Amino acid sequence: MLAQIRARMPELSPAERKVADHVLKAPHAIADQPIAQLAALANVSEPTVVRFCKRLGYAGIHGFKMALTRSLAAELPPSPVGVKSNEPLEETAAKVIDRQIATLIHTRNQLSHPRLEQAIECLASASRIELYGHGASGLVAQDAQHKFFRLGMPVAAYTDAHNHAISATIAPPDTVIIAISHTGRSRDLLDSLEVARARSVVVIGITGPGTPLARLADISLHADVDENTDIYTPMLSRLAHLALLDVLAVGVALRSGAEGRERLARIKHTLNQRRDLPDPPETR
């Protein structure tokens, strides 16, 4: 949540920024501060504190405090993973895997279920699904393409800026685009999505909170991962994005009911036939 507050600073009013600054300076103390005390320490009025909470998507101070407490409880260690060149390999492995586990738990705890439900409904009723992503996000898009393809849905993944620009120009209006980007600020990606949205194509963004992609998307699913992908190869954000797309694919599969299960069974039967090898000839 702290990363979300920092990312949304430009959207806040000057008074709301005072509340944000106070929260960022002493987040662990907020849970024990009544709204009057919080307002006094931030040098703002109590209604300003409530407006700040609502700006972040909470009904009031109580919901904000609960979400902040959960976020701090699942707080991740510093990025990238704190490994050292001279430490034993088992320590390095433990740090890398432990941080990956913590990232997935953090992503689960921060997930917006209403937005997730809305995204699944849009995907289940789409005539076609298209996935846009660059670099590591392109690999995530290709993985998701395989999952939706196995569900029998028309789907394509575009990792080249020219190709997704063409896609955005000609995709039918009942297409749903899933755009994947940790930073959410690739100009080529945003340009294509603006073209698609001008044609009333629904865009689902999988990105960090407060990014340009999050603001542009019709439905934004946040992966709030503290990872500097300007310097480091994406690892944690990639895992979070894969997990979110797995949830979307499973949700769409469940919507397909008996027909979807029968389709998956046929696919499994075809693949099993290709895996079964004849018994080797007997040797005398």
Rank of each mutant, 00 (worst) to 15 (best):
R6V: 00
A7Q: 02
L12D: 07
A15P: 02
R17P: 07
A20I: 01
D21P: 00
L24K: 05
A26V: 13
A26S: 05
A29R: 14
A29K: 14
D32W: 04
I35M: 15
A36P: 02
A36W: 03
N43E: 15
V44G: 05
C53I: 00
L56A: 04
G57Y: 01
G60I: 04
G60H: 09
H62V: 15
H62E: 14
F64Y: 10
F64H: 01
A67R: 14
L68K: 06
L72R: 03
A74C: 02
E75L: 06
E75C: 07
P78T: 08
S79D: 09
P80A: 09
N86V: 08
L89K: 01
T92I: 13
A102M: 12
R108H: 13
S112R: 14
R115L: 12
E117R: 15
Q118R: 15
A119R: 08
I120L: 08
A126E: 12
S127W: 09
I129H: 10
I129M: 12
G133N: 06
G135D: 00
A136Q: 05
A136C: 07
G138F: 06
L139E: 00
V140I: 15
V140K: 00
Q142V: 03
A144Y: 11
Q145Y: 15
H146L: 15
R150W: 06
A157Y: 11
D160M: 00
A161K: 10
H162A: 04
T169G: 11
P173H: 08
D174G: 04
T175S: 15
V176S: 02
I177S: 03
I177E: 10
I178V: 11
R187G: 14
D188W: 13
L189D: 05
L189N: 03
D191M: 12
D191P: 00
V195W: 03
A198I: 05
R199F: 00
S200I: 05
S200P: 00
V202W: 01
V203M: 02
V203N: 02
I204G: 04
I204Q: 08
T207L: 01
T211A: 06
A217E: 04
L221K: 01
E227I: 07
N228A: 07
D230R: 09
I231F: 05
T233H: 03
P234Q: 06
M235E: 09
L239N: 12
A240F: 05
A240H: 09
H241G: 04
L242C: 11
V247R: 06
L248Y: 07
V250I: 15
V252Y: 03
R255V: 14
S256C: 07
A258T: 14
G260N: 07
R261V: 07
A265W: 11
A265L: 09
H269L: 15
T270I: 11
R275N: 06
P280A: 07
T283I: 04
T283Y: 03
R284L: 09
